[in-house]
Nucleic acid binder design. Structure first.
Length: 597
DNA sequence: GCCGTTTTCGGCCCGACTGTTTTCAGTCG
């Protein structure tokens, strides 16, 4: 039998969306909710933290919300045979081009189908979007029934948008822009309150648009002031309650304005996430309430209950206020109902930075830090830390003999001993009482570590991580990592997925096995605070926390300024429901010292 | 087609915008 390459979650989600689109073309009204069911299943599959194929192997498909007996049956066939007769049947006769056209904003199933059937082979399978663009430019679209000049222009605009679709932005850039906009807004006296919204407020690892809420009695004046933001390159729209501008890096900034007595509902609605809001409205519906960005309405009754704060909004529904980082529909509503929300870890509780690269020359083949050990200790002092760990990359084993590597590591050990000597007993100095001698060691593709026993002996503890051969199979990669974690000096598995946001996907690992090993051998898992990594990712943090795995925060700083990125790592921890107890570097120096021995 | 601390049957999130329309369908966030 021919082996099919297992479909990824994203591919399965696309397939389910295609099935939903196919049902949309059938006009029977009973399909209405079936369409929604398929779209929901697609969303859930896309956001699932485990590969669907693995769940299927274990007979756990039903654990995915939105997958019931019927879809489950079709997926079973899909995994067994490589296709599903039911899905094929539903999509029979539909032109494949239409699914690609649906990428274009404003074009849904019906519009896509109509366009493809109308123009036939003029919209090719090879380049449907390009062909549609040509047709629009030639003015052919506006000749079709129910399409006019405006829809033609819309299609051209949207295609241009898809082509130049700017990537999502890293969290710190969005954060900085939002700060600047809010600072600018507050220069206008009519601005009573201003806060970021959306994925930025939820501290997602990447952000599309920046959305900002303002409470005011004078919307027009605020919106006018907003469009004069000095860095605004373009004004996209300016309405009565919203306005949009574009700032450098092609970032869109939207402003939403409401009177102060409705500000709570506004914040709640536009903070999202979409899935959280849907779940919340379904919850409210059972109590016969209908929610919107304006407030809460009793179903069938007139009048709107307004909310000045989000706390009062959630409390009205019988829920505790839910921190924005948790609003992803992963159980937070139930927890809020039962008063069982976690007490999330906070930046001020962090007492150490457990991944820093100094400029001490360990003659590594990777990048060295730019700041001296002394500069870093001073910075740690100013941040109120009690300890730090120096974790330069291991010395290059291709350029040095084993003996030379040990010599280098001994020199580093001496330097750190001296540094500790110079600050030991100075009780009046807050922070950085202890400097730990560590090393970030590559896990080679073989699973071996490129530092010998004698070299490892010089360390207080070691971090290990992946920096090469990212595309090994899941089983090989899992074996490699576990082998790398074996040595007793190894305490921390650093940037575990090795992903680079907007650049590179993470490696393929059997997380159940990895986490299991970490629990049994008391290995800690890092949340790397580098904004381009934010690794362990939030959904895996949540799994790890659920299993009782201990996490560490490390900024991976290569310059003292990078040490300020700690807050972004804390955001990831919070998104993963982590409390103070789950994070190793909330421990005092005394506690940490005991744990490391 | 899914789902259940009011339901295993009878429900299923909300509002806005847009264009092509004389009352609405399609799409989006």
């Amino acid at each position: 039998m021919r082996m099919h390459k297992a479909m990824t979650n994203l591919e399965i989600a696309e397939l389910l969306r295609a099935v939903a689109a196919a049902y949309q073309l059938q006009s029977e009204s009973k399909n209405r909710f079936r369409i929604i069911a398929y779209q929901r299943a697609a969303d859930s599959v896309e956001h699932s933290s485990s590969e669907l194929k693995d769940l299927w192997d274990e007979g756990k498909l039903n654990e995915i919300a939105g997958i019931g007996p019927s879809i489950s049956k079709h997926l079973d066939e899909l995994f067994k045979k490589g296709s599903s007769s039911h899905f094929s049947q539903v999509m029979k006769g539909l032109p494949p081009q239409m699914f690609e056209l649906m990428i274009i904003p404003g074009i849904g199933a019906k519009t896509a189908y109509k366009l493809v059937t109308e123009f036939g082979s003029k919209i090719s399978e090879k380049n449907p979007i390009g062909d549609l663009e040509e047709l629009a430019k030639e003015g052919k679209i506006s000749t079709i029934e129910n399409f006019g000049q405006e829809s033609e222009k819309d299609i051209l605009r949207s295609i241009a948008e898809v082509k130049g679709r700017s990537k999502r932005h890293l969290l710190p850039y969005a954060d900085r822009i939002a700060d600047e906009v809010i600072e600018w807004l507050k220069k206008e006296n009519e601005v009573l309150k201003a806060d970021p919204l959306g994925s930025l407020r939820r501290c997602a690892s990447t952000v599309g648009d920046v959305d900002i809420a303002v409470a005011t009695k004078n919307p027009q004046k605020v919106l006018n002031h907003f469009t004069k933001f000095p860095k605004a390159q373009r004004i996209l729209e300016k309405g009565g309650a919203t306005s949009s501008i574009v700032v450098p890096s092609d970032m869109q900034v939207d402003l939403m304005v409401q009177p102060q007595d409705r500000y709570g509902a506004l914040l709640q609605h536009f903070t999202g996430s979409k899935h959280h809001n849907i779940a919340l409205r379904e919850f409210a519906l059972k109590k016969n309430y209908s929610l919107s960005e304006y407030g809460i309405r009793k179903r069938g009754a007139k009048g709107l209950k307004k909310f000045a704060t989000e706390e009062s909004f959630y409390n009205f529904l019988g829920l505790d206020w839910i921190p924005p980082e948790l609003r992803e529909d992963t159980g937070e509503i139930k927890a809020a109902l039962n008063h069982q929300l976690p007490k999330l870890v906070e930046v001020r509780e962090i007492k150490a930075d457990l991944q820093i690269h100094s400029s001490f020359d360990v003659e590594t083949s990777h990048d060295l830090g730019e700041s001296s050990m002394e500069e870093i200790v001073n910075k740690a002092n100013s941040m109120g830390y009690e300890y730090v760990a120096f974790t330069e990359h291991n010395p290059s084993h291709s350029r040095h003999s084993e003996g030379q590597i040990v010599d280098i590591l001994r020199r580093k050990k001496e330097a750190i001993a001296k540094l500790n000597e110079s600050i030991k007993g100075v009780k009046s100095i807050k922070g950085a009482k202890r400097v730990y001698n560590s090393l970030e060691i590559d896990i080679l593709p073989s699973g071996k570590l490129p530092v010998t026993e004698k070299g490892l002996e010089t360390l207080d503890f070691a971090l290990v991580s992946i920096h090469s051969s990212f595309r090994l199979s899941k089983s090989q990669m899992t074996k490699r990592v576990i082998s790398g974690l074996m040595h007793p000096k190894v305490k921390i598995f650093a940037h575990p997925t090795a992903r680079k946001l907007t650049q590179r996907e993470g490696i393929d690992l059997d997380w159940e096995k990895i986490f299991d090993f970490c629990i049994k051998h008391d290995i800690w898992v890092e949340i790397n605070c580098d904004p381009m990594r934010l690794d362990l990712p939030d959904f895996l943090v949540k799994e790890a926390v659920g299993l009782g795995i201990k996490l560490t925060l490390g900024t991976d700083s290569h310059h003292v300024d990078h040490m300020d990125n700690m807050e972004f790592g804390v955001s990831v921890a919070r998104r993963g429901w982590a409390e103070k107890k789950d994070i190793i570097n909330t421990r005092s120096l005394e506690e940490f010292e005991k744990m490391i021995k």
